[in-house]
Nucleic acid binder design. Structure first.
Lengths: 342, 342
DNA sequence: CTGAAAGCGCTTACAG
DNA sequence: CTGAAAGCGCTTACAG
């Protein structure tokens, strides 16, 4: 089964060159003649030889690895499937750029700098799922101080040369979505989603929502903003608490699709039809959104692009280049749940 | 920013011991006295020293890394969110056992043995999402021949000491679910899901379904088995093609929740109410299942346990131990979509 | 363009 | 229980 390991020395012996030349040829060094390179690469292929990553990384003092950290802020029963899509895109991009992608699910308590940078496990970090900015401040500061390169999804945090971020046009899109609801004739609005200073994406969406209302002189007040984290369960509860206030509402803007799914279930269970009695819109365009009945009006984020940009930015940071944060464009997906559309 | 790297020699100098002793102390070797160990570990902590993974891996000829391969059989628009849950559990288990988890999305064409085993990138592989067994045969044989350790989700493939698998009681549970539908008075059944020899999970579910029907002398025929891969889109199409046959049906068993979601959307769009006109059941218990209206009757697989067992089995295989494949128990989640339940 | 040699930072026999 | 030394398999100055 396990035969003695094939090393670059073996290849060198067979090819009749030195081990250094083998090393160069396999890394496509221009120092090596084209003919020699082809010869060596052919032999390596025949022998199923592959460079030992540990040795090359140790010697070159690099890792060629990116770490993707899912940050689990709170007890979370399940993760937004939205992230799986980003992960897939990030993994593809990393692979095509020659990087390995280490995936971990992190608790706040862990020491990222020691675990990844100091241990030479990764050249940089991709942070997903940070919702509560405040609780991560200490971590982020430590990352910056240690010179660890990192990029964040959804949280605007940039230190030139060290960190960057990718987010989407949360505010503009939420404003446009709300304006669309107003155009459809809705006039009593509620918003579901926690928007503490800690949760930047939801906050931006809420601000866009408020802007749209203000533009049209539509009144709303604090009672009609129900906090909720991104889960069906909290969306469900939020609607129950909204209904218990007895306030009349004809449109609910949810900060995420998961919240919208829970909200619609609760409305159903209380005998309220969507969109006939109450319009509901979400955010994310999860796959389920177009297959729910009524289909969910929502905002589509380009997860493929998001994952790719996160990796590309990080690789650029690692290379010492300056990077510009990305604010990705989004698409309104108008469906039946808002009371119009297909 | 980047200061000279702290090594075990630095720690040794400060602690007043040899570098070997530092190495031993940090790996909790029993050879080192408790006092010395504490002393060294305290200094390492103060200095934010962490063992360089590349060096230790090269020296110890190990990787302490597991690779998780999402196999993308076909053009797949999105991955079953079910896998995200397994991934999360696998990542947690790997971390707690001291292993890194490398995540990649693989095309069939890639050479797994060279990429992971030969390159010393991982000690073993976890294979997720293999649906079409036939097309992977060559890959699996090569893995076995090279002595690469691997475990598979959902496909029964075991070579003692080399590979193992984790699956769930597909057949029994599908049989029980179908029997439940029969008990509720349904008598005209259809099954949606591709069950070529290539797709073992769906095939087992189909066999359980057929068994339940046979037990009760309920007739079905080939027209009432519509192939579909696990996606909402194919579930939707399958129902349209089923309806176009004009065959009367009062219950549809779907091979996955994603299929069921698409199937229910199609039924809705054709003016058929679930469960009043047609009962529908799925498989997987995705988070959405309990928040759809009607809520979806389905089979719950323990993804937390699945992810954990995959990693544990693989670590045991790597350690040279024999492992027994797991067939995990499942739970029927009876909800409204089958015409009974809450 | 190629080779001989040093050395990345550890782990692990070996000796005491 | 501790230390001196070898060596894992590469990359990369340095020399030619």
């Amino acid at each position: 089964m396990k035969t003695a390991k094939t090393t670059s020395l073996d290849i060198a012996a067979i090819a009749g060159v030195s081990q250094s030349t083998v090393s160069r040829a396999l890394r496509n060094s221009p120092e090596v003649s084209a003919e020699t390179r082809r010869h060596i690469q052919r032999i390596a292929k025949e022998m199923h030889y592959t460079v030992d990553r540990n040795a090359s990384r140790l010697r070159a003092q690099t890792t060629n690895t990116l770490a993707l950290l899912f940050c689990e802020d709170e007890v979370e029963t399940h993760i937004n499937p939205f992230f799986l899509s980003i992960l897939s895109s990030a993994a593809h991009t990393a692979a095509s750029r020659g990087y390995d992608l280490l995936v971990t699910f992190q608790q706040l308590s862990e020491n990222w700098v020691e675990d990844f940078q100091d241990a030479h496990r990764a050249d940089g970090l991709i942070l997903l799922g940070i919702r509560d900015r405040a609780s991560y401040d200490a971590q982020l500061i430590e990352l910056v101080e240690s010179g660890t390169r990192f990029v964040i999804w959804g949280l605007e945090h940039q230190v030139p040369g060290v960190s960057s971020y990718v987010t989407c046009q949360n505010q503009e899109s939420a404003k446009a979505l709300t304006a669309h609801l107003i155009d459809l004739g809705h006039s009593s609005f509620a918003f579901i989603g926690r928007t503490s200073t800690a949760n930047p994406e939801f906050r931006h969406r809420y601000e866009g929502y408020l802007e749209a209302l203000a533009d049209r002189r539509i009144h709303t007040d604090a009672d009609l903003h129900i906090p909720a984290n991104s889960s069906e369960a909290e969306g469900y509860e939020a609607v129950e608490s909204l209904l218990s206030t007895g306030r009349p509402v004809d449109a609910i803007v949810c900060a995420s699709d998961l919240i919208a799914v829970g909200a619609i279930a609760a409305l159903n269970d209380h005998g309220l039809a969507v969109p006939e009695n109450i319009a509901v819109v979400g955010y994310d365009d999860l796959p389920i959104a177009q297959y729910m009945r009524p289909a969910l009006t929502t905002v589509r984020q380009d997860t493929e692009l998001a994952g790719r940009r996160l990796v590309e930015q990080l690789i650029d940071l690692i290379a010492g280049e300056d990077v510009e944060p990305d604010e990705l464009p989004v698409n309104l997906m108008i469906r039946r749940s808002c009371g119009a559309g297909a």
